[in-house]
Amino acid sequence: MIAFDYIRPADETAALQAATERPGARFIAGGTNLLDLMKLGIERPRHLVDIGALDLREVTETPGGGLRIGALVTNAALAAHPLVRQRYPVLSQAILAGASGQLRNKATTAGNLLQRTRCYFFYDPASPCNKREPGAGCSAIGGFNRIMAILGTSAHCIASHPSDMAVAMRVLDARVETRLPDGQTGSHTLEALYRLPGETPHVDHRLAPGELITAVVLPPPPARQQSYRKVRDRASYAFALVSVAAVVSVEEERITEAALAFGGVGPMPWRNREAEALLVGQAPSAALFERCADVVLAEANGHGGNDFKVPLLRRTLVSCLTKLTGAEP
């Protein structure tokens, strides 16, 4: 780990000022991903602004019937929160499907969203990686790529986003609230927060330098049926090969609302509005769910070692929808 300056400001204003006075400063919250990467020399911040003392640990109801989750609410506290368990079970389930008890006690809501890929080659400084070193090349393309993405990839990077929580946040239409160094506030959907790798896979998100996530806001709870289904190489404490977050309403034997998000398959938690629209107004059936999967996977590409993710995502989606809608398998 290279040496860095360190400061632990007492409030947001001081944190933003600290980040401004030393350009290139990074915010650190739980540190479970950033410190890991700093030990390996993959992240090399010269200045760390520890935001652990900021007053961002509350979960409160919004006037509109949604939920405002402070950026520093731990993953464990969020998964156990009574309002989350009651109204947004898909979020609680997704968080509990990820990491370990120890990590969930430390990792924060905002930090979870900004965690970096778990691509083996990104973590291995001896292997070329465009995300770690722009222009170096991609070791996963044509190499061992079991965990890599099948959607939204580019010729420069096929890394997948590792978060379970973010998949649930995306299906719930969460927005990220921020504060900028000039005092202005920002609000971003997850689609706008993340970026696809394209030719610049080293840039994961669109936050401006010194922009601080202060909260994640959920709209009022959606349809009653929600679930998070994760498929992985072992029963606990492993990243998703594929995952499906689904929120579906069925009334009078017709699907009236549907939202779907997918983990382990894209550079960001993935969503496909066309596939969701196809379900609405229809009677649940195996044939319908297969057509939905066709749309989700229309542009999917395996890279050899992860070809299995294409049929695996299809089966996981169909199984998930069958269970949620009570359709005959």
């Binding site: 360190y6 632990r8 650190i28 540190g31 479970t32 410190l35 890991d36 030990k39 520890d50 652990g52 464990a76 370990s100 008890g101 120890q102 990590l103 006690n105 430390k106």
Partner: peptide, 26 residues
């Protein structure tokens, strides 16, 4: 030393964490 094995688990204000993935100064 990377938060994967749990050998370094300690209790901080009663909550279990991986002490390898946290700075003492925090």
């Amino acid at each position: 030393d990377h938060g994967q094995c749990g050998a370094c688990t300690v209790l901080v204000d009663g909550r279990r964490i991986n002490s390898c993935l946290s700075l003492a100064v925090m």
